[in-house]
């Protein structure tokens, strides 16, 4: 049976080869590479952030960033860390830019309708491990604005704090998420 590490090593080699050929101007290989990367990025974001409504935006922004940065790939260096550095950066960028909401079914919304909105959202994002290491204040700020679709003003009103306070919490929370992502060991 092929192990996860073998698969990653194979991806690493194949993607590196594809990128080198793409740098030489092979559009067919480049299209194949971006398609594979798109799927890998989608899994990466979904595993860490759950079903965000901006997931597809994130994936496409990451692909665009990889395209714009493709001349910085040096085949003497591993491909996956290069790619995931760009992905991490773009994902945080997309999250920082605006509000988002968790993609949930109408049934789930009905089931949660009776609960306190913050508690309901916390239930929905239960298991999203990137949020588990945040402090309760930071988690609330992220959950309301990035998973609940609240504006900062609405989130501030819900939590009974000022808008600048929620903005500061969000900023620090996203920095903490960035640090967490950077600390993850990516398979080379």
């Amino acid at each position: 049976m092929t192990s996860k590490l073998d698969l990653r090593a194979r991806d690493e080699q194949r993607w590196s080869d594809y990128m080198v050929r793409a740098q030489r101007g092979d559009p067919a290989i480049y299209e194949r590479l971006l398609t594979e990367l798109g799927d890998a990025i989608e899994v990466y974001i979904r595993v860490r952030f759950g079903e965000l409504s901006v997931l597809e935006d994130c994936v496409q922004e990451c692909l665009l960033a990889i395209h714009q940065a493709r001349h910085t790939y040096d085949r003497r260096r591993p491909f996956r860390p290069w790619m995931f550095t760009i992905v991490r950066h773009k994902t945080i960028d997309v999250l920082r830019r605006g509000s988002s909401r968790v993609a949930i079914s109408d049934i789930a919304i009905d089931e949660l309708a009776g609960d306190d909105p913050t508690d309901a959202l916390l239930k929905l994002i239960d298991g999203i491990n990137i949020l588990e290491n945040l402090s309760p204040d930071h988690r609330e700020a992220v959950v309301l604005t990035k998973y609940g679709g609240y504006t900062t003003a609405e989130a501030a009103a819900t939590l009974g704090i000022s808008e600048s306070a929620i903005k500061a919490r969000l900023h620090r929370a996203l920095q903490a998420i960035r640090r967490q992502l950077e600390a993850e060991e990516l398979p080379a």
Binding site: G25, P27, Y30, E31, L34, G38, L63, H67, D74
Partner: peptide
């Protein structure tokens, strides 16, 4: 799963991918 908009973006990017004459060489 690759969505139609993503597919279309990828096609555009691939068509736009000229040869990189000078890849970054740090040292």
């Amino acid at each position: 799963m690759t969505t139609p908009t993503r597919k279309s973006l990828i096609r555009k990017l691939a068509a736009d991918a000229d040869e990189i004459r000078r890849p970054a060489r740090v040292e």
